[in-house]
Each structure stands twice: as structure tokens, then as C-alpha cells.
Design a binder for these strands. Sequence first.
RNA 1: GGGCCUGUAGCUCAGCUUGGAUAGAGCGACAGCCUUCUACUGAGCGUGUGCUCAUAAGAUAGCUGAAGGUCGUGGGUUCAAAUCCCAUCAGGCCCGCCA
Length: 560
Amino acid sequence: MFEEKVFAVLKKAGISADGLEVPDPRFGDFALPCFQYAKELKKAPQIIAQEFAKKLKPNLWVSQIIPQGAYVNFVLNKKKTQEYVLALVLKQKEKYGTNKSGKGKSVMIEFSSPNTNKPLHLGHVRNNVLGRTAANLWRANGFKVIKANLVNDRGVHICKAMLAYDLWNKGKTPESVHKKPDHFVGDLYVQFCQAAEKKPELEEQAQELLRKWEASDKKTLVLWKKLRKWCMDGFRTTYAEMGISFDKYYYESQIWTGGKKLVEQGLASGAFVKTEDGAVKAVIDPLPEKILMRNDGTCLYITQDMYLALLRFTEFKLDQMVHVVASEQNLHFQQLKAVLKKLGYGWADKIYHFSYGMVHLPEGKMKSRTGQVVDADDIMAEMKQLAADEVKKRHPDISEKDCAARAHAIGLGALTFFMLRIDPVKDLLYDPKESISFEGETGPYVQYAYARICSILEKADTFPKKVDASLLIHQTEKELLSHVAGFPVVVQDSCVRYDIHTLCQYLLKVATGLNAWYAQCPVLTAVHELRDARLHLLRAVGQVLANGLGLLGIEAPTVM
RNA sequence: GGGCCUGUAGCUCAGCUUGGAUAGAGCGACAGCCUUCUACUGAGCGUGUGCUCAUAAGAUAGCUGAAGGUCGUGGGUUCAAAUCCCAUCAGGCCCGCCA
């Protein structure tokens, strides 16, 4: 926010610099390392720093310029900057932190992408929260965002659940067995897999059913639609619980044959070649070559993705297409981009695979097939229960309704924050107990900081219009203010670099800063002007926490 | 066999893109603090279930302090390497006419 002020000072003295560092606050607000000039000027960086410091003139914004070793440190005018930041936050409110850099551009974020043969699991939770936050961040940076969900509703795995229904569960419905509908279908799938281990011929039957589906066999389609609806109904409930929504749904059943023309086109132009046995492949050195169409002329997963990409880029004129998909598909997306480029589509470069690692539990790995997955609905219920226990411990007389609302905010907040706070590229160890803790680097810790602020503001009763920000001279409140000032940069960086976890780290820093300040600087009992200034600071910090949590898709309860 | 990713304190993680001032957090364990907002107890007021004051001991959703490190290992580049390059070890993922 204030970097330009320092640049202005440098420019006036005729010193060119590419960038400044943000040093330890003890040294100053910005630092210019002088190593870079040593070669050119043929002097030791320490001496250069001394000379620079003499040449540079402080101004209204930059109050001190101090050489220190090989660095020139700049100290900003606290009164000026603090006043500016406070006023800005209180004026922009929920818009504070956003910018318009993406104005007129649009981006599609595809995430979640469930299969209609089983409920969402823990991995989907990570996917969902990453996708949602990515969408929020792009929007905060001024982009038009389209949240898309690609539903995988066709394929042999779907037929397996259908077969299990037909063979052993005819006539049953989710209602009749009191199950959430997607769980009902998931159980069918597990039942099939277990049976197929003993009777391998079942696999062949599933293939046969898939052929019937592909031939649009009436009875098969009726069954398929029934199971598909159950799954989608179940997903809707889960999404509602998580607070996830989409602007656009794509169904594989509707697009899976669409890529055929693209393959033929590429074959004609020489981009693709035929294999000996009549299939079509793309040679995309240095990546492994990729088969695009079977020798019977049917399409594959990648063919469908090619078609879908074309569909999207023509319909929406996208400036960026983000796929939130697990890291196991890294190669697939590399190949997809390479193949599209081979077809001459320049926009292939705008496809970004937002890859993320697996989620483990302390107890060990989760593996599907046997049904040993951690279910999304179950984990959310567990988190809410843990949160409810904590709430009741502290407010024994709370009403069930209030308790449920708080438990939802805290439990889901804990889950979400824990998943977002780690670099997406890394595998993640999810520990429910640790995540719900009010201490440490957790969602509840941040939420709690916000609740404390609300409590104080509530008690303050009045809110002053004008304040003297220069009264905020305590070390902790100066640091807090500089955190507040840093929010817009964090919003920008975590978006362009897909570093959602840096936003989490930032919010933790703000919450910690708030608590440290809170312990040392009383607000309500401070004398008039100081109290007023601190109330403003409090509201500004609260705004930043609320905005930040909002980006993460986490509720900011006013009481906990 | 080949490709991609990860390896930083007992545990969970930042920092690596763009090399720079003593390698940062959190949990845990250790030692303290309690101030106004969190919690306990008491007194007074109120009776719009809250407010004010005080609090020995103890607690903690808060705070402070100290402890804890061959940055997987070995080499190289550089004035300077957790960061860049090479090799190597360990773990994960991928390499299908599956999705």
C-alpha cells in the first residue's frame, strides 16, 4: 500500500530499484538491500547503504531513512499511514481488500466433480473448500467468476451400482431404508465390489449393462435416471450444508461423445495419427503419447475433456479456466493442454490445473471399494458434534437452536480452515480434534478473535466518527495496523499464485496480533480520545477478519 | 524402468517462484501472568438473565518467557544457499484403447 511512497523517495534521489523487502519491524517498514549495486559501483554494500542514506530525503510519508549494514531501512510516518489505513478500511467495509485488476475478464473454476455412484468423501471436502476459496479470491480481484461442477454420471462404475440394485435390492428406496439417497447408492456400489471379488463374472455383466446404456436401452435408462437423481439429491444436501454453490452444471452423459469431431479434425490436419490397429493417438513429446479414440470409434475421457474445453472457451470467452482436481491427474492435464495446442487452440495456455494432495487421517489411509472411506457428511457431523460439546461446556444453558447454529459455524469453520491452511500441493493429515481447538493455528482461534472484537464493540455502545489515529503508538497496535494494511496485497498474491494457505497464515497473524494487543491495551477503559482511536482499530481489525474468513467460506460468528 | 511432487524442532506446518540482516509459527512439554472485554467465585444493584465492583486459591477458549534445528544426505555455483544446479536416499502420486 505504501511501497510507492518509498519508491518516490528513491526516484527523487535518482536511485533505481526493482523491489523492496519487508524487514523485521524493528528495522523499519521497508528495506533496500544494497548488494545489487555493489558490482556496478565497485564498493562494499555497507558503504553504498551509507551513501544512499545521505542522498535520500525524508518526506511527509517516509519519516526516517536509516542505513544499517548493507541495507537502507525506511520508516514510514506512522500518523499519516495509520490514519490512511483506518479511514480506508472503515470506508470500504466488506470491500476492503478487493481490487479491480480483473475487470472485464472472466474465469471459470471447476471443482467438486462428484461421481453419481457414491457420496462425497473427505477428499471432496478439500476439493470443495479449495474451489470455493479460489472462486472467492478471483472475484475479490475483480474477475467475473463462473463456478462449474462437472458431474461424472456415466461409465462402468455407475453401472455397477445399477446392477447391484437390479440384482439384490429391487424395489428398495432410500426412504424405505431410511438412508440419505447418495449413501443408499454408495452402499449399492460397495455391495457390488464386494460381491465381484468372489464372482468375477459380475464385472462382465456390468460391462454389458454399460453397452446397453450406451445403446440407450429404455429400461436401463430408467434405472440410471433413478439412481442418478438419488445421488444428486444427496449431493445437494451436502453442498447446502457446506455452503457450496455452483453457477453451471455439466454432465458427462451429455457431452461424452462430443469430442469425436475434434479427433477427426485433428486426424485430417495431421495433428493426430492412426495406430496400427486403427485407434487414434497424439504424439506429444516429451509427454507419453495419448490415445484419443478407440479403434471401434468410441471416445475416451480425454476426448470428452477436449470437447468440454472447446465448449467452455467458445461459450464464455474465458481468460482463465481453473480445474480443481487432485494431483493424481497431473499428467492428464498436461496431456490435455498439449493435445489442444496440437489442434492449434492458443487458449489451451489459459487452462490451469489447480492440483492438490491427498487427505489422510491419523488412523491411517482411507481406501474406497471396501467402503472404508471417510464420508463428507460423517466428518461434518462429527465436527459439529465436537463443536457443540465445546459450546455447551461454556454455555450450559444455551438453547438447542443457538447451539446448533454456533456448532455449525465453528465445526465447519474448523474443518475448512484446517484444510486450507496447508499448501495445496502437499498431502494433508486431517486431525479433527486438533482442528477444533480454540488454541493454535485453527479456524476457531480466528473466529474467536472476531467474536471478542464484536463483544467489545457491543459493550462500547457508541462508535466515534472521527479519531486521532496517531494516538495508536503502542508497539502491538502499530503492528496490528500494519497487518491490516497488508490485507489487499495478500488477497492479490494468494489468488495469482494459488497460495490459499498464505491467506490463512495471514489471518492467524492478525488474530494473534489482536490477542497480543488486547492483552496489553485496554479499549473500554482507555481515556476518551485513545478509547475512540482503539475502537476504530478494533472495528478495522474485525472487518479484515470478517472479510478474510468470508473469502475462506468460513462464518464469522459474533458470539461463540 | 521413466515422469511429477514432498522431505525444515518430538508432532503438524510457513519460508523455496524472485539466493541476502540471528531459519519462522502452532501443538506438546517447562516456567510465569490475569489487566477491561473470555471463564470461575463472592458482594452490591437490577430483574429487560444483565450491569458494577472485588477476587484467596484454582482454572483457561487469552497473554508472556525460556527450551527445542546436521533445513533428508553428499557435492557444485556464489561475496552469500533452506532457497539455484547435479547426484543420492526415503515417502506419495502417475505412466490404460479406465475415469
